[in-house]
């Protein structure tokens, strides 16, 4: 689409940079097995090797290659976060748009359920549910998707309600258009920009949330490489960081690598979201 390309060309530097970063993450996640020099969870050398060839980022407490684990972590952490966000979105946006369009008892019930779910902080709720279900990837994805879909529901319902007050919806209704046409052709194109921005924000949230649970030891379980649990595993090393020698410094910085990987991706996504919101608010004027 040439229109989108021109839009991209006019993007500010920060957004371009952020998009490039996201692309790097995406490529890393997609081609992890080919990019990683060593297998994900195999012991390939002595413990705590310093940053030097062939273990460019050293080895961890078990002697696994840190760089390889970071690369595989991209696939696991980002992949699961993305799957969860997509699920939360399908659930939340579908019910939200429907609740706004249909109204009546469906809207009332859905809104009350969401009110109650949102009255409990998600981390606390997730911890409660994970106590019961135990820590499995499926449980993790489902629990977070359901909890997060409440936010998506609220937003898409509000956005759709704003659109539904417009006269063009009345025109469509007077013409006798069906529900499907109204949602797909009238509401959805107008809700796209805020929903895309929300997708970015929700992804950040889910991604941080899963990493936080992993960091607490309740998310992805070893030996799966995952950034949150990598921070947890190497956390204690930070107290030994000192900048007297290369080896000591790289040793202590170990927990900052996966944490930084998480931070950079969320910053990049947030920048793109800012830009999308800016562009779409400009289009309306």
């Amino acid at each position: 689409m040439p229109r989108h390309l021109t839009l991209l060309r006019t993007a500010p530097l920060s957004a371009k940079l952020a998009l490039a970063l996201i692309a790097v993450y995406a490529v890393t996640a997609l081609f992890a097995p080919w990019l990683a020099p060593f297998p994900e969870s195999e012991i390939v050398g002595p413990k705590y090797l310093p940053w030097a060839a062939p273990h460019w980022l050293g080895t961890d407490a078990l002697g696994r290659d840190v760089l390889s684990r970071l690369i595989h972590g991209a696939r696991n952490t980002v992949g699961i976060a993305l799957a969860t966000t997509v699920l939360a979105f399908l659930l939340g946006a579908a019910t939200g748009l429907l609740a706004a369009t249909v109204g009546g008892w469906f809207d009332t019930i859905a809104s009350r359920v969401v009110d109650v779910l949102m009255a409990i902080p998600s981390l606390i709720f997730a911890l409660l549910i994970l106590t019961i279900t135990g820590t499995s990837v499926i449980a993790l994805v489902l629990v977070i998707a359901v909890l997060d879909s409440t936010r998506v529901f609220r937003l898409s319902r509000a956005v759709a309600q704003g659109i539904l007050t417009m006269d063009y919806i009345e025109v469509a209704r007077m013409r006798g258009e069906g529900l499907g046409w109204i949602v797909r052709r009238e509401v959805l194109p107008n809700a796209a920009a805020p929903l895309i921005a929300e997708f970015g924000l929700r992804f950040c949230f889910v991604f941080l949330f899963i990493s936080a649970l992993s960091f607490l030891g309740l998310g992805l379980q070893p030996p799966t490489a995952d950034w949150g649990s990598m921070v947890r595993d190497s956390a204690k090393l930070i107290s030994f960081a000192n900048f007297s020698s290369w080896q000591a410094a790289t040793f202590g910085l170990a927990p900052l690598l996966p944490a930084g990987a998480i931070a950079i991706l969320t910053v990049a996504v947030n920048m793109v979201v800012d830009w999308v919101l800016h562009v779409s608010s400009g289009l309306r004027d």
């Binding site: 417009m166 006269d167 063009y168 009345e170 025109v171 209704r173 007077m174 013409r175 006798g176 052709r185 009238e186 194109p189 107008n190 289009l283 309306r284």
Partner: peptide, 28 residues
Amino acid sequence: HSRQRPRDLQRRVQMIHQMADTALNPWH
């Protein structure tokens, strides 16, 4: 209710709104 009117009736009675801005879907 307009929904229950036969399509031919919906066709024969049309309406034009005050604010053309909000009566046109910005993406159509």
